[in-house]
Simulated assay, not measured.
Amino acid sequence: MSKGLSKNYKEGAVLSFGELLLRLSPDDGGQWLADNALSVFVGGAELNVASALSLWDVPSQYFTALPKNGMSDQVIGYVSQQGIDTSKVFYGGNRIGLYFLTKGKDLKHDALIYDRAASAFAELTPGMVDWDTALDGVTWFHFSAICPAISQQTADVCLGVLQAASARGITISVDLNYRSKLWQYGKQPQDVMTELVKYCDVIMGNIWAVETMLGIPVLGDIHESGQKSIYLKEALSTSKRIVEQFPKCKAVANTFRFDGNGEIEYYAALYADGEFYSSQEYSAKAIVSKVGSGDCFMAGLIYGFYNDQTPQQTLEYATAAAFRKLFLASDATTNTVEEITNTIENGQ
């Protein structure tokens, strides 16, 4: 395992923090209107992480905010059935956030619409939650860049819980997932994220997200190179600059997924303890859904570190888990540890 992250995580649980969303998925042809039916998925980036960890037998807790009503009771019952501890959920506000993902004939034409204004989570304010209680029994705290993208108020809530978690010595991870349709409140992502990332021990994303979120530029014109060696070299450079700028950070992970020439290519890299690791590469002719793949990778990182695996083992597990998620329609993975391990061993 990474020496910088070495601690007994098994003394506590992993708490995933973020907004629970209902995903509605109409088809692009409008058949859902004739059928009078919409597919509904319970999701949210951080919930996807919590679901994967629970499936893989890591003690998994989830914090979100929901209105106190019958629908919320049904949703929380569904989440709890996955073995996730929902006792930290905060009840208040009037609605659950939604997003619509219209399924195109190919994944490039999927259409995303958010409907999460004035949701219970978006209406959280600093001081509303007792973080000491929420963080009790927690050894790892995870959040994503989607949360502070909602509003300055939500970003302030994030800062408060990060400060509380850091003060308690809890390991903190962040997924720098960028959502261009968010960040609509007058702040650039790096204006907010550079303050929050100061508290993070593990940072996951990709070199382009880091450029957008943290202002650490991708050096040179590599966007169209298509050369794995160049991308990995840039991942190492970016990782070193992250650790220099944010000294609390102990590990940086970068994922690479490319769609081209009729194939999906997927691989990843990890920088930990001054050493750089790259994963085996996976490819496929077609996939089912990109939703939740990055969340699954993040869960794989946490799983590896939590179980004291080496950096290379951790990276291989996270990469294989994320690749397998591309073939599932659900938001969260349903692949077991055994299935993921078999993927690593078989290279497919």
Rank of each mutant, 00 (worst) to 15 (best):
E244A: 08
F276R: 05
S289R: 07
F276L: 03
G260V: 01
A329K: 12
M298L: 13
A321Q: 09
C296L: 07
V288L: 08
S293E: 02
A322R: 14
T336K: 09
Y282V: 06
S293N: 02
A284E: 11
T341G: 10
Y266Q: 14
D273M: 01
Y266C: 10
F297V: 03
F305P: 01
K290R: 15
G260H: 07
T255V: 11
N335I: 03
D273S: 05
A268C: 14
F305H: 15
T319V: 10
G300S: 10
A299P: 04
K290N: 11
D331A: 07
D273L: 00
F297I: 06
L315M: 04
A251V: 00
A322H: 10
N346C: 11
Q312A: 12
K248D: 12
P311H: 01
F305R: 15
E316D: 15
Y282F: 15
G300E: 11
A329R: 09
A269R: 01
F323S: 06
S283T: 15
D259T: 15
N254K: 01
G262S: 11
S289E: 12
A329N: 08
F297K: 03
T333L: 01
Y306H: 04
A284D: 07
A284M: 07
L270W: 02
N261F: 09
N254S: 12
Y277T: 04
L270M: 11
A286V: 14
A299M: 13
F327C: 14
V252S: 06
V337G: 04
I264W: 02
T255D: 04
E281M: 13
C249A: 06
A318S: 11
Q313P: 01
C249K: 03
F305L: 13
K285G: 14
V252N: 07
G292Y: 01
Y267R: 09
I302F: 08
A332T: 05
Q313L: 01
Y277A: 04
T341I: 04
A284Q: 06
A269G: 08
N342T: 14
I344R: 13
A272K: 06
Y277I: 03
N261A: 15
S283Q: 15
A299L: 11
E316Y: 11
A268D: 04
Q309Y: 09
D273N: 04
I340T: 13
Y271G: 06
P247T: 13
G300F: 07
T336P: 05
A272V: 05
T319H: 05
A322L: 10
Q309L: 14
L315T: 09
A268T: 14
N335A: 12
T310N: 00
Y271A: 06
E338T: 11
A321N: 08
F276K: 01
N342Y: 07
D331I: 02
G262I: 09
S279F: 02
E265I: 05
E265M: 08
F323L: 07
N335T: 13
A251T: 02
S279I: 01
S279K: 06
E339W: 05
T319P: 10
A269F: 02
F327H: 15
T343E: 15
L270N: 01
